[in-house]
Design a protein around this nucleic acid. Structure first.
Lengths: 110, 110
DNA sequence: CCTTACATATAGGATTCTTATATATGCAAC
DNA sequence: GTTGCATATATAAGAATCCTATATGTAAGG
């Protein structure tokens, strides 16, 4: 059975997936998600930051303060080993949800 | 852009899709959803009833009391014309969300 | 100096789903 | 005959997730 958290957890999958490509800070993360989905998926920064804290508490990502070339301080997040391990079952759960919903709409159509 | 309600709205899509096949009461609705998804998607009745009220308030479904052959009273819900009209854009929104998440995970993998 | 882009943060609220609980009927088994 | 199970609806209390609005501050460009 699909876990109860999954249905609202689009953001979680999106963040972990993008971080798989390499460490990023919050502001850039939001832009990548929007770009890579052609604007279909978008998270406001106010929604993103609390989520990053949550993911960090769960040890799936780890944040570190860094100072960029232009002297701006920002918090750079990277996937932890636990986060990497979390990713594939999460993707499988999503795939299962998609199949389930497709079955529902198709059966209804028949 | 994908609407903000969609991400939590799996239940909404599931209920409307199943009702497309014909009127049903709540208890049977829950069973159909579970059966047709091979147990992957499941809603407890306590979650289902408040949702049915909400869908009824929005005029997408309409409930009517009936008495079955065995003398048990139950509330039978059917799709309204507005509900039918709602269904296809909702399915399109979901398809768009799926594509967006697939793009994210694939780009991250590349 | 004023605006825009960058960057993080918190408060307050809305929505949705869960667990737990309550009620009541019909039917079969013992 | 009463115990237990499947049927059937309902509400309350709470957790989780996301949104809007707001605040703060730096850097670059006009």
């Amino acid at each position: 059975m699909i876990g109860s958290g999954i249905k609202r957890g689009t953001a979680e999958l999106a963040v972990l997936s993008v971080l798989q490509d390499g460490p990023l800070h919050g502001y850039e993360l939001a832009r990548r998600i929007e770009q890579q989905t052609n604007g279909a998926l978008r998270f406001t920064l106010a929604a993103l930051y609390p989520m990053l804290y949550r993911l960090e508490q769960q040890r799936w990502i780890r944040g570190a303060w860094e100072t960029s070339a232009n002297g701006r301080r920002r918090r750079c997040y990277r996937l932890t080993p636990a986060g990497k391990k979390k990713l594939s079952p999460l993707q499988r759960e999503w795939a299962e949800l998609f199949r389930a919903l497709q079955r529902l709409t198709k059966v209804a159509h028949a």
